[in-house]
Simulated scan of single mutants.
Amino acid sequence: MRFLLTAAAIITLVPVASAADVKYQVRDTADLVDVCDTSTRAPDITTALAFCHGFLTGSAHFYYAGVPASSRFACAPNPAPSRSDVMNGFVQWTRANPQYMSEPAVETLFRYLGETYPCP
């Protein structure tokens, strides 16, 4: 109950974003690649990269938390690659595999991770 009250208090303090405030939308793989591609050198590249890193990291954490180790098809090597290395590899891999650009971004991300970092 205390958690619910705390969550409700926080939600009321967070401003509601209108559609005009939405900077990045990831509707498919092409959208994610556009945000993650550092070659674009957008004026807000720092924000774009932070969004990309957050998407990739959040997806990975969700996967590793929800899929038992015995069922995983993508495994982080030791030592693990940096977020930037994964991001850049994902962008390059996806550009070389354009048939996935209209697929859901998280599906393409895990297709890349499974091919690049398969479990032993």
Rank of each mutant, 00 (worst) to 15 (best):
D21R: 00
A30D: 01
R2L: 12
V35G: 10
D21N: 06
D21G: 01
S18Q: 07
V33Q: 03
L5M: 13
V14T: 14
V14D: 09
P15E: 02
V26E: 06
K23C: 01
A20L: 01
D34P: 02
A8F: 09
P15Q: 04
V35H: 10
V14S: 11
V14Q: 11
L13H: 10
V26H: 02
Q25N: 06
L32D: 03
A17F: 01
A20Y: 05
A30H: 02
L13Y: 08
V26L: 09
V22Y: 00
T12P: 01
A19V: 13
V22I: 15
R2A: 15
L32Q: 04
L4C: 02
A17M: 07
L32E: 07
L5S: 12
K23D: 02
D31L: 04
A9W: 15
V22R: 06
L32H: 03
P15S: 00
I11P: 11
L32Y: 05
A19F: 11
A9Y: 12
V16Q: 13
L4H: 05
V22F: 02
A17T: 07
M1K: 09
A20E: 11
M1A: 14
A30P: 01
D34N: 02
S18P: 05
P15I: 01
I10S: 12
A20S: 08
T6Y: 12
Q25A: 07
T6Q: 08
P15V: 01
A17S: 14
A8P: 09
A17H: 06
L4W: 06
A19Y: 11
M1S: 12
I11M: 15
T29H: 03
V26R: 03
V22P: 00
V26Y: 06
K23Y: 02
L4I: 05
T12G: 10
L13S: 09
Q25R: 11
A8T: 10
L4K: 03
Y24I: 06
A7P: 04
A30F: 04
V26P: 02
A19G: 10
D31S: 07
M1W: 11
I11Q: 14
V33G: 02
V33D: 06
D31H: 02
S18I: 02
D34M: 00
Y24H: 08
S18H: 06
V33T: 00
F3W: 14
M1G: 12
L5I: 12
Q25L: 08
Q25E: 11
F3M: 12
A7M: 12
I10W: 15
A9K: 15
K23A: 03
V33F: 00
I11Y: 12
L4T: 00
A8E: 10
D31W: 00
T29F: 05
I11C: 12
R27D: 07
L32G: 05
I10P: 06
D28E: 14
I11T: 12
K23G: 03
D34R: 06
T12N: 06
V16T: 15
D21C: 00
A20Q: 08
L32I: 03
